[in-house]
Amino acid sequence: MVRPCFLVIDREFPGSISTRKLVLETAKFNVITAYSGKEAVEIFRRFPAVDGIVMDGELEDIPSEDLAVLLKQIMPTVPVIVISAPGGPACPSADRRVESFQPQKLLETLRDLKPRESEEIEKRDEDLSREI
């Protein structure tokens, strides 16, 4: 089983663990975390084989639209999901927008991107639960 890997761009302090990272890892997704737009671009250039990018729509160093454009220049096919509050800044270059900070909405969006892999993860979890 290959677990999908997502680059999460979060504006939380790097000394703490990103809440989004915890949510995705709990759902058995692999996560690479960046704490600024600049760091995200550097990481994505080094590790372009991610299955998608989840970014905070209100990063401080690079506006979300500019960052989405930069990321798409590196890999045009990578899905970019922007998370923002309702009425937050527009990001037309993002493939999807989650207008909520509810973890379940984000997980539903990511599972829609990788349905087969998500199904395999759920089946594996069920199998492990039965063994216990």
Rank of each mutant, 00 (worst) to 15 (best):
I9G: 04
E25F: 07
G57A: 09
I43M: 13
R116K: 13
I17G: 02
G57S: 11
E42H: 07
E42M: 09
L59I: 11
C5M: 13
E12A: 12
E42A: 13
R45W: 03
R116Q: 13
L24F: 10
E99L: 13
G37F: 14
C5S: 13
R111Q: 07
L7H: 11
A68G: 14
S64A: 15
K21Y: 05
E126R: 10
R130I: 04
Y35H: 15
A94V: 06
G37V: 14
K123Y: 09
F44R: 05
A34G: 06
E58Y: 08
R124Q: 09
L22K: 01
P92G: 09
L70R: 14
I32R: 12
A90S: 15
D56I: 05
R111Y: 00
F44N: 05
I62W: 08
Q102D: 09
D51A: 06
A94N: 07
P48A: 09
D127T: 09
S129F: 03
I9E: 07
D112H: 04
I53Y: 00
L71F: 05
S18I: 07
I83A: 09
I32Y: 07
P92N: 10
D66V: 13
P48L: 07
V23C: 00
P92Q: 10
A34K: 02
K28E: 14
K105Q: 04
V23S: 00
G88Y: 07
I81G: 04
P14K: 12
L113T: 06
L107N: 03
T33I: 15
R96T: 00
R46I: 06
M75L: 03
E131W: 00
R96W: 04
K72V: 05
Y35V: 10
V54F: 01
G52E: 07
E65C: 12
E117D: 08
E119I: 03
V80W: 10
L128D: 11
D125N: 00
A68E: 14
I43K: 13
I74E: 02
S129Q: 02
A94M: 08
R124G: 00
T109P: 03
P4W: 03
E119G: 03
V69N: 13
E42N: 12
A27Y: 03
L70I: 02
G87P: 14
I32S: 08
C91A: 14
L107Q: 04
S36C: 11
S16I: 11
T77C: 02
T33E: 12
G15F: 08
L70K: 15
V41W: 07
K38V: 15
F44H: 06
I53C: 00
P63D: 15
E65Q: 15
R45M: 06
L22F: 02
L67T: 11
R45D: 00
E25Y: 08
F101H: 12
T19H: 05
K105T: 01
V31R: 10
S93L: 07
S118C: 00
D95H: 15
S129G: 01
M1S: 14
P92K: 10
E122K: 10
S118I: 05
R46S: 12
R20P: 04
R96N: 03
L107W: 02
A85L: 13
Y35F: 15
T33C: 15
S36I: 12
L22E: 04
A94C: 07
F101R: 10
E25W: 08
E58V: 06
